[in-house]
Design a protein around this nucleic acid. Structure first.
Lengths: 339, 339
DNA sequence: CAAAACCGTGAAAGCGCTTTCAGGGAGCGT
DNA sequence: ACGCTCCCTGAAAGCGCTTTCACGGTTTTG
């Protein structure tokens, strides 16, 4: 059988209550007693039973990462792994565990009542599609939640986000400064704030330059490589074709690049191309991709900090915190105007 | 306050025991009563408290994925994401949750006594470096564990693996058939079985062809892109340089390719290159990489099935199961002998 | 027709921990 | 000396669930 707290207490000659106090670092324990208990713990290799602890204390030291996307899309893009890495870093430091909540495609209501079940003390939701299920869940949930990326329709949820709009604008202004004028964009999903914001930045830049936003130059994608490929094919049917393309994610830029290659066009020779994210692959592509760097890991770290801080001060008051992280323009070789 | 099983019982006019039986689908409950209980559950949106259930039943419906590697290396390679995806697929089907157990670099003993703590019902360990800590942990652990990849020094642990040795041999034989004779290899870590096996396959092929394994043509890497880059630089100092290189992972092949490019060499024009894994990137590279396909997702699925089957039949007998999945040679453009 | 098997149910005993409450002893001010 | 506060400790009451046991009733068996 396993060693329990009672065994420790007996061995140290104290009551279970005192043993518990020692383990949880409560004050008001005689130093000598404290040491006796620790010794018993070391000698027996005692490990507290987590479910029992959770049940009694209502704290599980576990947070969930919720990504409301089909599993297979989750890892196609290095964005999520990098984000998770950032979160994990902070959680490890603070002795929290991470529960990966991967939604199945078939489950219509995947993250229902996570809080009530008592397993998760808090949750980080990333890349939130603003659908009915998610919003409903967030509204009903009883555990603290932090969102990576704003959720416009629920202002009360603390979030950490990057300045997508400004970043996109800087990028497109860079394209304009290179002399490109017929700039197309492959947007992200318009039901995600990041998708809308990056498109807004694109519009901002064109407007500021006195250029119109032409509907035929705007194609919606979903951040995936495949959608970039398809969107680019659509853009290539235009006459004349665009002289540059801003893809709202690096993976879409990669897909677009493949479509251009397939069509026998060279980048940046025939057409300029730029992305967003600065995933590791962006630097490795030929040509190296000009893009906007998001501090993805930092995004995860900040979200975790926000959440864990909130759990630590178990004030029930709904804290609404917002953190905005900067983006950075990374100029490489994929959109250099050649005269 | 939250709804408890007692509330359900009261509402349905039965005892808590009966309500519990209904929830857990036990037999010997009157169908009418069963329906009354379900109705109460639906009406109240009741969700069982997981820690309480775990405590009472000693089953948590949670398994851990343990990857004994520093976090930052974990996601650099799509191998792990694909593996996790496979595991998640099976777990979702069977209502199990996944706990990602990411070791910190600073924690010397990261996965100690996971079982004792009562949170994890079982664990999948992947890419096991055969170090002291891991072996010690596996030996002491009280929960069922399945390994992805063999662990030679602990025969008792069920595993699922791919035929690394045979796959590597087929690949190198392909290189030989292309006319390459001075074939170098960048191996994986020699403290991982997969690293050793792939090297063994390389040796097998050379021996079968009556060729010696020259020590200067063998450089050890660690599966990462960076290590492939460095190793290739080492190989390029040889006189003459190899006419082909077998990298034991696609990421290392990518690193090697970059080193070759940097040295002004073309692939496959000046030197042949082949990898192992067939990650999505392999097909996307220029030139497209000849490699060996591992069914990574299937690997994860099988591991999860093995583990969950074992948990379901809670026979305490140590079941030792081994599953070997096939590899497949994928011939693309990176090692075509041009005359 | 008695004995045996089975079914459906509730009472009650935990699972291993946290936390409240109360109390004894020590220290301090008056 | 007395009352007060503060420190340390143990007893005991749960946390919300599963599971064993016992029991009456019904059905099957020999």
């Amino acid at each position: 059988m396993n060693i329990t707290l009672d065994d420790i207490a007996r061995r140290a000659g104290v009551s279970r209550a005192t043993a518990s106090r020692v383990i949880n670092n409560h004050p008001h324990v005689n130093p000598a007693v404290r040491e006796r208990v620790w010794q018993a713990i070391r000698e027996t290799n005692y490990q507290p039973n987590l479910p029992a602890r959770s049940l009694a204390s209502r704290r599980s030291q576990v947070i969930g990462i919720i990504i409301p996307q089909p599993i297979h899309t989750l890892f196609a893009d290095p964005y999520f792994p990098l984000l998770i890495e950032g979160i994990a870093h902070v959680c490890n430091e603070r002795q929290f565990s991470i529960m990966l909540d991967l939604a199945t495609t078939t489950d219509s209501d995947p993250y229902r009542h996570l809080g009530r079940r008592g397993f998760l003390e808090g949750a980080i939701v990333a890349s939130a599609v603003e659908d009915q299920f998610l919003l409903q869940w967030l509204a009903q949930e009883t555990i603290p939640v932090v969102s990576v990326g704003r959720i416009t329709s629920l202002q009360a949820i603390p979030y950490v986000d990057v300045n997508n709009r400004y970043g996109a604008r800087m990028l497109v202004e860079h394209l304009l400064s290179q002399g490109y004028r017929r700039i197309a964009t492959i947007t992200g999903p318009m039901n995600i704030v990041a998708g809308r914001d990056r498109f807004a930045g694109y519009s901002d830049a064109l407007h500021a330059a006195g250029l119109p936003v032409l509907p035929e130059l705007v194609v919606e994608g979903n951040f995936s490589e495949q959608s970039g490929f398809t969107a680019m094919q659509t853009l290539l049917r235009l006459v004349p074709i665009p002289d540059a393309v801003f893809a709202a994610s690096d993976m879409m830029a990669l897909g677009a690049l493949k479509a251009l290659r397939a069509a026998g066009l060279s980048v940046p020779g025939d057409i300029g191309l730029a992305g967003f994210d600065d995933i590791p692959l962006a630097a490795a592509m030929t040509p190296a991709l000009t893009t906007v760097r998001q501090p993805i890991g930092e995004l995860g770290q900040t979200a975790a900090q926000l959440l864990l801080d909130r759990l630590a001060t178990d004030s029930l008051a709904p804290v609404t915190q917002r953190v905005m992280l900067p983006t950075e323009l990374v100029i490489r070789d994929s959109c250099v105007r050649q005269h």
